[in-house]
C-alpha cells in the first residue's frame, strides 16, 4: 500500500523534467526526495497525485494505478503542494471544514489525526488564511491535507523558507504521523532533513543519483574528507581552489571540506603550501561526510 514508480519520464517541450525514474516507497515509510529547485520533485508529485500524466512509465499509489484508478487515488492521498494553495479569503476553520466536506467527512470524525497540529492554530480559527504567518499557513495546509485520513501523504517542500525551529517542530509532527501508519513522501532542499527519513532518493536534473538509507548513502562517500580552517576563509578557498592536488573543496560552516587527489593525503605539504599562501591558524582534521557532501560529490 505504499508507492511504486517504474520508468517514469516526463518532458515539457525540450526540457526533460524526469528521466526514466524508478523506485518504491514501502507502506508506512517516511521517504525523502532530496534535491534542489528544478530537480523534478514537483513533477513527480503531480504525476503521483494524478494531476499530471507521465509520458512513459507506470506508477501506483496505495495499490491504485495513477491512470486507471485516479479517482481512488484522489480519495486516499493527502497532498500539500509547495505553493500555499488554500483559500486565502476563508478562515482557518472554514478551510478545514471545506476540505473535510469535499471528502465526505467532518472535522470531528478525524480530529484525532490533526489535533496535534491543529491545536496550535485553533486560537486563530476565525482569522482568514491569507492573514496567517508562514509557519501557521504551513500547519493549516498540513491539517487540510490530513483531514480525510489519507493512506499516503505527499508533502512538496513543506519547510522551504521556514526557520530552523519551525522546521524541527514540523519534522517531529511527521514522525508522529508516521507512527499512525501513514506512508509519507516528502521533498526538501535541506540536506540536514534527509537524515530524519527512513530512506531517501537524491534527485537532480530529473535523474535519481542514489537511493538508500541516510547512513548507507553517507558511507558511500568515496574519499577521506578533511575539515580545514584558517584565519581568512576567502584566502583559504582561493588557495585550495588553485592547489594542484585538490580533488574537491566546498565551504562548510566554519570549515572547508576538502578531498585530495592523492592517496594517502600529504598533510604536511598541504600545510606548507597554505602557509606559503600567507595563511595562519591552519587546522587540517579528518571529518565524517554528510548527506550534503555525498550529494555534491554525486552531482559534480
Amino acid at each position: 500500500m505504499g508507492i511504486t514508480i517504474s520508468n517514469i519520464s516526463k518532458s515539457y517541450g525540450e526540457i526533460t523534467a524526469l528521466s526514466d525514474i524508478s523506485f518504491d516507497v514501502k507502506p508506512g515509510e517516511l521517504f525523502g526526495l532530496i534535491g534542489p529547485d528544478g530537480a523534478g520533485k514537483t513533477t513527480l508529485f503531480r504525476i503521483l497525485t494524478t494531476l499530471l500524466i507521465a509520458d512513459h512509465g507506470q506508477a501506483t499509489v496505495a495499490g491504485y494505478d495513477v491512470l486507471n484508478d485516479y479517482k481512488s487515488i484522489r480519495n486516499s492521498v493527502g497532498y500539500m503542494p509547495g505553493r500555499f494553495s488554500l483559500y486565502q479569503d476563508l478562515t482557518v476553520e472554514e478551510n478545514l471544514n471545506f476540505f473535510a466536506t469535499i471528502f465526505g467527512t467532518t472535522i470531528e470524525e478525524n480530529y484525532d489525526l490533526v489535533k496535534d497540529i491543529y491545536v496550535q492554530i485553533e486560537p486563530f480559527k476565525n482569522r482568514r488564511a491569507g492573514k496567517l504567518s508562514g509557519g501557521m499557513k504551513q500547519k493549516l495546509a498540513l491539517s487540510c491535507a490530513l483531514i480525510h485520513k489519507p493512506k499516503v501523504l505527499f508533502l512538496d517542500e513543506p519547510t522551504t523558507g521556514v526557520d530552523p525551529v519551525s522546521r524541527k517542530e514540523f519534522w517531529e509532527m511527521l514522525k508522529r504521523l508516521q507512527k499512525k501508519g501513514i506512508t509519507i513522501l516528502v521533498s526538501t532542499p535541506y540536506m540536514d532533513e534527509a537524515a530524519l527519513c527512513d530512506r531517501i532518493a537524491l534527485i537532480q536534473d530529473g535523474n535519481i543519483l542514489e537511493i538508500d538509507t541516510p547512513n548507507a548513502i553517507v558511507s558511500h562517500f568515496p574519499k577521506p574528507l578533511y575539515n580545514i580552517s584558517a584565519h581568512n576563509m576567502y584566502n583559504l578557498i582561493e588557495s585550495l581552489t588553485n592547489y594542484e592536488h585538490t580533488y574537491s573543496i566546498f565551504p562548510f560552516g566554519e570549515f572547508v571540506h576538502y578531498t585530495d587527489k592523492r592517496h594517502p593525503i600529504d598533510k604536511a605539504s598541504l600545510k606548507t603550501y597554505l602557509e606559503f599562501q600567507g595563511l595562519t591558524d591552519i587546522k587540517i582534521e579528518k571529518t565524517q561526510p554528510t548527506i550534503e557532501d555525498t550529494f555534491m560529490e554525486l552531482a559534480k
Binding site: 534542489p36 529547485d37 522551504t160 532542499p189 566546498f250 550534503e292 552531482a299
Partner: peptide, 10 residues
Amino acid sequence: TGGVDPITRR
C-alpha cells in the same frame, strides 16, 4: 539562497 542546490549555494 533558499531552495538553491548545495553546489550553487556555495
